[in-house]
Amino acid sequence: MANQDEKLVKSEASFMRLRTSPKMRSLKGFYRKLKRNRAALVGGYLIILLMIIATIGPFFLSHGINDVDYTVRLQPPSSEFWLGTDHNGRDIFSRIIYGAQITLIVGFLSVIFGGVAGVVIGIVSGYYGGKIDAVIMRIMDVLLAFPGILLALAIVSILGPSIINVIYAVAIYSVPSFARIVRGSTLATKELEYVDASRALGASDFRLIFKHILPNVTSPLIVQATLSIATAILTASGLSFLGLGAQPPSPEWGAMLNDGRGYMYDSGYIALFPGLAIVLAVLAFNLFGDGIRDALDPKTK
């Protein structure tokens, strides 16, 4: 019994230390700031809703995404087909729900690939400096000289039209933004006194980068990643609309928008609902990203 009481006291003490730790106080302050931003909360709720729809939505669909039935083609929204049917008699609601999976996968994977590459390039460039920094930054400047959609268009044109190549293209054009942000934070962090002290005590470059520099670039990275997902979704949809992304009969929202282009006057809902889905997804990530940026800004009160 005494041992159990001892364990209980120790667990309570560790829990209290966790609650009063600087990291926990920082997280609480971040959450309070984020909670005061109603637009960010709306964006966050929309993102959660999108993730839920993409995860479990396809299991509850009553119509297949590629079930062709020409007897019900171009049907307006009804109790059976909530968002109507397209020119092939396919249920638009089912295709939009399933397309949420593709959209979020493209957005997250492209930003993860581009972010990891950008972080590595930015830290190496900012930490070592000199000729390495000059060469890397000139390459990044060349990539930034091209508008994002044009650079992605050129990459997909070379690699070939597919959703996988869209992910690669969006990831490649995302690299310079991450690299420049991380480089700037690295240049500022590596001159701090505690980093100089660690270096004087014999800490290796690997330890300095991962223990002192990388944690200091996390905040701007989170903001950039959130906003980049919105850009990635918009770019991927644009490429699919042009026929260079997801190929038929994929229910990707940009491809669906292209399918409805020829029926704008007679059956405008075919293009309307995929377009609204793209707008809501991009708006959600932009609102949430702006809220995170405000919450992480130390200048805000």
Rank of each mutant, 00 (worst) to 15 (best):
I112A: 12
I112P: 08
F113R: 03
F113P: 11
G114D: 06
G114S: 09
G115F: 09
V116R: 09
V116L: 08
V116F: 10
A117N: 10
A117T: 13
A117H: 14
A117R: 09
G118Y: 00
G118D: 03
V119L: 00
V119N: 05
V120C: 04
V120M: 14
V120A: 12
V120W: 14
I121T: 12
I121H: 04
I121K: 06
I121D: 04
G122V: 00
G122A: 00
G122N: 06
I123C: 04
I123V: 08
I123E: 06
I123G: 01
I123Q: 02
I123T: 06
V124H: 02
V124F: 06
V124M: 07
S125H: 07
G126M: 08
G126R: 07
G126V: 12
Y127F: 05
Y128C: 06
Y128A: 05
G129M: 01
G129I: 00
G129D: 05
G130K: 11
G130R: 12
G130N: 14
G130E: 10
K131P: 11
K131F: 15
I132M: 10
I132W: 15
I132L: 13
I132K: 14
I132R: 11
D133W: 10
D133G: 04
D133T: 01
D133R: 09
D133F: 01
A134W: 15
A134I: 15
A134N: 15
A134H: 15
V135E: 13
V135G: 09
I136N: 14
I136C: 15
M137I: 13
M137S: 15
R138P: 02
I139R: 09
I139K: 09
M140W: 09
M140S: 04
V142A: 13
V142H: 11
V142W: 09
L143D: 06
L143R: 12
L143M: 12
L144R: 11
L144N: 14
L144Q: 11
F146C: 10
P147Y: 01
G148L: 00
G148N: 04
I149A: 02
I149K: 03
L150G: 07
L150A: 02
L151S: 02
L151V: 04
L151D: 13
L151R: 12
A152P: 00
A152D: 02
L153M: 14
A154C: 06
A154S: 08
I155E: 04
I155L: 02
V156A: 01
S157C: 14
S157H: 14
S157Q: 14
I158D: 14
I158C: 11
I158F: 15
L159N: 07
L159A: 12
L159P: 09
G160F: 04
G160Q: 03
G160T: 02
P161F: 13
P161W: 08
P161C: 12
S162K: 06
S162T: 07
S162N: 02
S162D: 00
I164L: 13
I164K: 12
I164N: 08
V166P: 08
V166L: 06
V166C: 06
I167E: 09
I167Q: 03
Y168C: 10
